[in-house]
Structure formats: C-alpha cells, structure tokens
Amino acid sequence: MKLLPLLASVLLYTAVPVLAQADNAAGGCTEVTVDGYKAPDYGCLGQQMGNDTNAAKAAQKNREAQQLSVQKRTPNALGLSTPAATGVRMGNTFGTSVKPQRP
C-alpha cells in the first residue's frame, strides 16, 4: 500500500520535466508568475523571433533599398534642404530677408 503513492510520486516527478520540454519544443514559451508579476522567457522569445523564414528576404530588400543611386534619392535623405524646410526655417522672412526667423 505504501509503495503505490511512492511510485506515483516518482513517476510524476520524472514526467513533469519531459512534458515541459515537449511544450517548449512545440513552440510555446514558459511564462512564470511571481507575486502577481509575469516574467516571460526572453531567451525562448528571442529564438522564436530569430527563426523567421521571411527575415532573410526582408534583410535583402533593406539592402537593396539602401543601395539606390544618388539621383533617385530624396533631397532630405542626402542632407540637402528642401523648399518646404527652408520655408519653415525662414518663417515670415522667406523671400524678404537673408536672416532666418528660426536658427
């Protein structure tokens, strides 16, 4: 009679880590709650975010977008002033004075 509870506790003790590993392998991350505060497993979340199949495609598109020729880039991307930005900077003195309203 005393052997049955002992055997059940041993089986439960060995089965819980296996079930937890199976849950993490399936894609779920363990979330721990301590005194009402939730603490997610950031390592697991980072792995899920890093294993994105579209990440390589997105990185390639970013590299292509950054390699535009100088002629196709916008003036503010090149550090040049646009008429709208100059108008904001000059304020009400735009076209009448060389001293800007705003520095």
Rank of each mutant, 00 (worst) to 15 (best):
K2I: 03
Y37M: 14
G43K: 07
L7H: 01
P83K: 13
G50E: 03
G87E: 07
N24C: 06
T96K: 15
N51C: 09
K38Y: 00
P75I: 04
A22M: 09
Q47H: 06
Q21T: 00
F94C: 09
E64C: 04
Q47C: 03
N92R: 08
A20P: 00
C44V: 02
N92F: 13
V18P: 03
L12V: 11
Q48K: 14
Q47K: 13
P83E: 06
V88H: 07
K57P: 02
P103H: 01
T33M: 08
K72C: 00
A8K: 10
P83D: 11
D52V: 07
N51V: 12
T30I: 04
P100K: 13
L68Q: 14
R102F: 15
T30A: 06
K57T: 12
L19G: 09
T82F: 04
V34L: 13
A65Y: 10
V34K: 10
K72E: 02
Y13N: 01
F94Q: 11
A25E: 10
S81T: 13
G27P: 05
T86A: 02
A25F: 12
Q71I: 03
V16N: 09
S9D: 00
T93L: 13
M49Q: 15
P103L: 08
A77H: 04
L45Q: 10
L6D: 00
P83H: 05
P103C: 07
L45M: 12
T74D: 08
M90S: 04
K72M: 01
M1Q: 09
V70D: 03
C29T: 10
N76D: 15
K61M: 10
L6N: 03
R73Q: 14
G95T: 09
T93F: 03
V16P: 01
T53R: 09
A15K: 12
R63F: 05
S69E: 04
A22C: 02
V88P: 00
N51K: 15
A77W: 00
M49T: 15
R102N: 15
K57D: 08
Q60W: 00
G91A: 10
D41V: 06
G95N: 09
N54R: 09
L11R: 11
Y42I: 05
A59Q: 07
V88T: 08
P83V: 05
K99A: 11
V98F: 10
N62I: 13
L4G: 02
T14L: 13
N92D: 08
V34C: 02
V34D: 06
E64W: 03
G91I: 07
A58W: 08
T53H: 06
G43Y: 01
T30S: 07
Q67I: 03
T14Y: 04
M49S: 15
G46P: 00
A65K: 13
L68K: 14
R63E: 10
Q71V: 07
P103W: 01
K99M: 12
G27A: 08
C29Q: 08
G46C: 07
G46L: 12
G36T: 04
A55S: 09
G91H: 10
A56C: 04
Q66N: 15
Q60N: 05
N62C: 10
S81E: 03
V16L: 15
